[in-house]
Design a protein around this nucleic acid. Structure first.
Lengths: 173, 173
DNA sequence: CGCCTCTAGTTGACAAGTCGACTAGCGGCG
DNA sequence: CGCCGCTAGTCGACTTGTCAACTAGAGGCG
């Protein structure tokens, strides 16, 4: 459901093929949603079947044919309906916190190592966000401002994560 | 996988039935993982089959019989192996950010309403965490300290979320 | 007595997401 | 020529998570 709406939202920016979408899920939206190739193609097929997108085959130059998908009026309506509907209830899924919650089974050194690994991961994530931001055009219109805000979200939260790790390590000392 | 290890971790604290576990997933660990009843019972059965837990039927007083599950040595070993293994790569799944990313399809008023709904949700979550903390014993041993740290994590992040929403609203004005 | 409710546990169907293998056209290279 | 690698797309099998209906014993209540 959510994936299908994100795809509609991306198609609202420009017509795209499954491969184009996959590239977005690996770069511009990777900080908020990820999707498998197979899942993208299948969702795309479902959207076409529901009349939310239409397909045009564009003969590929130096490559296979491209199946360009474009948003239909019904698709735009479905996107708007989702955007105005109640927020999706999202189950919390924090694998690292889960480990910490049951980490009393480890000795002190292993707990410290666990926390260290998390710090490394957080730093990598921060670097990733910096990379995405570097390759994103500056905010000109409102749409771009909103998209940049989602990146800002990620960066603020990673910084909070690092601060929390600091306080946790101090506590464990 | 992760769910099964969390269950092993909970069984390490005390022997439990499926219903006991469900209560934990609805209260003490709800801020980091959630699980459906059916999933818990099925995972529990798989753990028994793998020899990571054993079952004892305790005749219920004023209630149905209880199938108490206790951690076996193999179960404890599996838990330790997970705790020492590489961190689980978790796909980012931020439904709200997804909405914001494609929210340019909305007019200004609807975008503001969207952000407001998120603020409400964040405040509710903060209240939930306060509730959980209020019903949690103070930190006496290291295990309890670690478990409280996961709550602290949630609260810090909700506060960061609220700050981010402030800055977002200011930007939209 | 029949009915309701509570607790504990079970089951089937299904949606969502993951993984790996595979088709197929094109261009480059030795 | 045959092979490699690139891009686009397809498929089957599988895991994980969700939903709703259901069994079944115990106690309370009118």
């Amino acid at each position: 459901m959510i994936l299908s709406r994100i795809i509609l939202g991306l198609l609202a920016i420009a017509p795209m093929t499954g491969a184009d979408l996959k590239r977005h899920f690996d770069s511009t939206v990777t900080h908020l949603w990820s999707a498998d190739k197979a899942q993208i193609y299948r969702t795309l097929a479902a959207l076409v079947e529901q009349g939310f997108a239409s397909v045009t085959v564009v003969p590929g130059t130096n490559a296979p044919d491209r199946q360009e998908h474009r948003l239909t009026d019904a698709g735009r309506a479905a996107l708007l309906a989702w955007l105005r509907s109640d927020l999706d209830r999202q189950p919390e899924r924090e694998a690292f916190l889960a480990r910490l919650f049951v980490a009393d089974a480890l000795d002190d050194a292993d707990v410290t190592a666990l926390v260290q690994r998390r710090r490394t991961a957080a730093l990598e994530q921060l670097a990733l966000y910096d990379g995405i931001r570097a390759s994103t055009p500056a905010a000109t219109d409102r749409g771009q401002r909103l998209r940049l805000a989602t990146l800002d979200h990620g960066m603020r939260h990673v910084r909070t994560e690092l601060e929390w790790l600091d306080s946790l390590e101090e506590q464990l000392r």
